[in-house]
């Protein structure tokens, strides 16, 4: 990239940096409250189990498959490229495809701005952790052996982060699964996901196969522990919610514009065809 051609100054600061520490906290809290009000306003039920979801496929023309999701305040865009050739033929298993998952926060997505544009900065630690969590949740759902010697790239961009990064993992997993299905990559099942927000417990689940693919538990905010019984009940509840999310995902897949196209494309084949 040609750095001299950039119109942005070399050094930039978040305007909040210049504030007094106390007033900074106030502003951050106010922003959080505003976001909370938004969700409560949108919710029909005030409990967190009823988060509104918006889901759409086919958003990025360039990609093989893509999807966009909003859960609460979290907004995530996911695009799938591939299967493509592995660029460096070194230490890969050639019999199965290599899933490459990259999660990024847009520089404006969080409360505190992240420095630099996406191409300038490397993945930070939290982005890397989220990438591996998402990859772990999705890998069991893909028929990787069908794509030997190739790589499937999954780019997930967080456009808006929620309070304490809640819902980000589950939104990314749902978006990625929808994007994979949209890219016509063979899947054992769609992966549905749900975050139990009070303790940030994310359960990813394949409803048709009745298998849990991953449990992601990051309770950084509260630092509290969970008893085994409580943990079990949370997981059961999450799985029930995953099933609800799944029926919504199914509805979107079956009713997107993609399907009206499919219908037209196949019209001439619907009659019985005799090929000697």
């Amino acid at each position: 990239m040609n750095r001299t051609a950039q119109s942005v100054p070399d050094e930039t600061w978040d305007p909040l940096v210049f504030l007094e520490p106390n007033s900074l906290l106030e502003i951050v809290n106010q922003r959080k409250q505003n976001l909370d009000q938004d969700t409560e306003h949108m919710d029909t039920d005030s409990t967190n189990s009823k988060q509104p979801i918006f889901l759409k496929t086919d958003c990025v023309n360039e990609a093989s498959g893509s999807s966009y999701i909003e859960i609460g305040n979290a907004k995530v865009l996911c695009s799938v490229y591939g299967p493509r050739e592995i660029p460096r033929r070194d230490d890969y298993d050639f019999k199965v495809a290599n899933l490459n998952c990259e999660f990024r926060f847009a520089s404006f997505s969080c409360f505190m701005q992240r420095r630099g544009t996406l191409s300038q900065r490397d993945q930070s630690l939290d982005e890397k952790n989220l990438s591996s969590a998402i990859e772990e949740a999705l890998k069991p759902s893909i028929l990787l052996h069908k794509y030997p010697k190739s790589q499937i790239d999954l780019y997930i961009l967080c456009i808006q982060n929620d309070i304490d990064s809640r819902n980000i993992v589950c939104a990314s997993i749902i978006a990625a699964s929808m994007a994979l299905a949209n890219a016509s990559i063979e899947l054992y099942d769609l992966v549905s996901s749900y975050t139990y927000t009070p303790v940030n417990l994310t359960v990813s689940y394949m409803p048709q196969l009745n298998q849990v693919t991953s449990i992601h538990f990051s309770n950084e905010a509260n630092g509290a522990c969970l008893s085994t019984d409580l943990f079990k009940s949370h997981i059961k509840e999450s799985i029930e919610n995953c099933k609800k999310v799944y029926s919504f995902m199914k509805h979107i897949l079956l009713n997107s514009d993609f399907y009206s196209l499919l219908k037209n494309g196949l019209d001439h084949d619907i009659k019985k065809v005799d090929i000697s």
């Binding site: 759902s141 099942d189 409803p207 065809v273």
Partner: peptide, 16 residues
């Protein structure tokens, strides 16, 4: 060869 295409759409994981 004779081929028939189903009316309903299947999604990954659905039993055929």
């Amino acid at each position: 060869m004779e081929s028939i295409i189903s009316e309903d759409t299947y999604i990954p994981g659905e039993k055929i």
